[in-house]
Each structure stands twice: as structure tokens, then as C-alpha cells.
Design a protein around this nucleic acid. Structure first.
Lengths: 194, 194
DNA sequence: TAGCCTATCTATAATAG
DNA sequence: TCTATTATAGATAGGCT
């Protein structure tokens, strides 16, 4: 699947490792998204980069998936409360999203004709988005994560179970889940990112 | 990556959906495993089939990854539940992505040009971005949404923080969660995993 | 500065209908 | 299983902190 066949073992060359991580991470999330759409499945993917940054994909929200997983919730869907998103902002977002998709389509099919100025504007904006994203990423915890231990691939036989009928997910709390954890990381926004 | 090009939208034929789900789920786990090995990354993947079954991949253990992820949320002081907003927007994005695929397909078969329409859309898009950029001033959730517009990948933020100096992470036993499980090695890595 | 991530192009290995 | 389509290795460049 590339210029050359590779062995599945740790990439030693650092630069190659970083590039490969970035590309494969994108590929993995894309696959997860496609699986969700094609099969009406729900999935969450959490990846910690070698640089210790966290990347997450979830459909619907990673939180909903994880919560359901931890609760063995099988009979009800944990929907993301629409009220979580401010109405106006949401509307703006959806409108822009639609246009963004239209734009992407044009970029791919038309190419740069008499739209040079427009493309530049778009690129500039996308560049600023990337900066913002990096800003957020910068807040990722500094902890050093341990060695690769044992890989586990398990199919869980999900037993039917009741679930909070409100459909609203509460903040995740390890103690509440009864999950043992031997370390304390301290993830989270501090409320003053920007 | 198959005999026929397919559009990313829900598969209606039940039998096809099941086969596709099974194959793609395996493929997704395999990709996740390869990413971990190749890049010394750590990842967890949780998938709920349309039939409500849960499939999980984790390296090192899904539990370790999930713990890490959840802890971020537990300590979150964000004004808006970041994860849920991400999830919501992400879902919107995926749905839009699905529609886009359908649209592309339609345009390919019809062969319309829509150049005038395109320029108009571009202008609207730029206007929308301007509005959003102004609104983005100090709202974390807005930025999150805008960031999400750019990609399905979310990079979660977390402040630098100390953690247990033991530096040793113990794999969390699934049994400790009271989670029943059976092993599913739908694929392998030449006899030994890692 | 060094570290980490992303973008893009081409040839080709891997995959999915 | 077969093979057309897709994902990605490799190379290189660039960006931000």
C-alpha cells in the first residue's frame, strides 16, 4: 500500500514515524467514520500520539460511546443533548459547513481558474484554524505514558442492561464507574484556553 | 478499495451491511493495531454494531486508554462539555460528509457545470467564515466547532500536569469492571501480536 | 534550536464488493 | 476468490512553538 511493502514493526526513523503516524491516524479516523455511516454503527477511537497528544474520533460523540460501553448499555441510545450547542452558533456552523463542503467539491473538480483570490482567502482561513487547533493541542498533558503492554482485542458479549432513561450523560467519573486507576493525569480544559 | 466504487451512505441491503460491517470492523482494528506498532502509539477503538454488539480494540488495554481519556473529562472545567460538543459537531460533519458523497455521485452522472452557482457559493462561504471568525472571539465551543469543520479529527486539550510518580501503568483488568468478554482475534499478526 | 505535526505527489500494496 | 479502487510508503517541503 505504498511505494514499498513494509514490515509491521516499530519505525525507527523518527521523521518517517511522525509522517506515518499523521497519515495513518487520519486514515483510521476516516475508516471509522465510513463504518459508522455505511453500517449505522457507532464508534469511538482514541489515539495517543508518540508525542503524547490525544486525538479522538466519535460518532456519536466519543463520550456517548464510552459511556455506553462502560455501562453495558445496549437497549437505549445515549444521544447528545442538542441543547448543548447554542442554537445560533449551531445554525451558523451548519450553514458554513454546507458551504464548506460545496467549496471542497469545487476545489477538487474545478481546480484553480478565476478563483485564485477566493482560494487564497480560504487557505488563509484554514491556516488560522490550524493555529487555533495547535493552541488547543498545546494544553495536552505532559505525562509520559508507559510502554506498550499487551494488546487486547476483545469482542464483548453485551448483556442487556437498563440505562438512565433521561438519555443525558453525566460527567464521567472513574470512581463512579468503579474503575480502578493507578494514576492521576488531570486532563481537561482550564476554561481559559484562548 | 474494492471491485466497485461505493458511496459513503447507509447500506440498505441487510446482508451486505452485515458483511461490510464485519470486514470493515476487522480492517479498522487491524489498522489501529498497525498504527500502535509502527508508531509506538496507543489507541483504543470501540465499535457498536447495528445489532448492538460491542467490539473493542485496545493497545495497551482499552481500559488504560479510556481511563486516560475519561480523566480529561473528569477534570474538565470547560464551560461547555467539550466532548459532547465535539461529538455533536462531529456527527453533523459525518452526516454532511455522507450527503456530499451522494451529491458527488449525482453530479458525476448528470454532468452539470454549475460554475456560476459555484462562484456564488464561494462568496457566501467567505462571508460566513467572516461572521464566524468574528464570533469566535472568546467562546471555546465555537472554536471547537470551527475546528471540527476542518476535519473529523479532534485534538483534545489538556493542561500540563503532574501525575503519579510511580510511572507504571497497570493494565486494567476487564474483569475488574465486571465486563464479560470473550476473545475475538478476527485477525492476527503472524502468530504473535506485538 | 529542535520537536512534532501536516500537505502533497507518485507508485504500488492492501483491501473490499 | 478476483481485481478495481483505495490507502499509504517514500520523499520532500513547510509550519508552528
Amino acid at each position: 500500500m505504498g511505494r514499498q511493502k513494509i514490515q509491521i514493526k516499530k519505525i525507527e526513523k523518527k521523521s518517517s514515524l511522525e509522517v506515518t503516524f499523521s497519515k495513518r491516524r487520519i486514515g483510521l479516523f476516516k475508516k471509522a467514520g465510513e463504518l459508522c455511516i455505511l453500517c449505522s454503527a457507532e464508534a469511538a477511537v482514541i489515539v495517543f500520539s508518540p508525542g503524547r497528544r490525544a486525538f479522538v474520533f466519535g460518532h456519536p460523540s466519543a463520550d456517548a460511546i464510552i459511556d455506553r460501553f462502560l455501562h453495558r448499555e445496549t437497549n437505549s441510545r445515549a444521544l447528545v443533548p442538542a441543547g448543548q450547542v447554542h442554537g445560533y452558533v449551531q445554525r451558523q456552523y451548519l450553514e458554513a459547513l454546507g458551504r464548506l463542503e460545496v467549496k471542497r467539491e469545487q476545489e477538487e473538480t474545478v481546480g484553480g481558474d478565476g478563483e485564485e483570490h477566493g482560494l487564497n482567502e480560504l487557505e488563509q482561513f484554514r491556516g488560522s484554524l490550524e493555529k487555533l487547533r495547535k493552541k488547543v493541542a498545546d494544553r495536552v498533558e505532559e505525562m509520559t505514558m508507559i510502554m506498550m503492554m499487551e494488546s487486547v482485542m476483545v469482542e464483548y458479549a453485551a448483556p442487556p442492561q437498563e440505562y438512565n432513561s433521561s438519555g443525558v450523560l453525566h460527567g464521567h467519573d472513574l470512581a463512579a464507574h468503579g474503575i480502578p486507576h493507578g494514576f492521576d493525569f488531570g486532563f481537561g480544559f482550564d476554561g481559559h484556553l484562548f
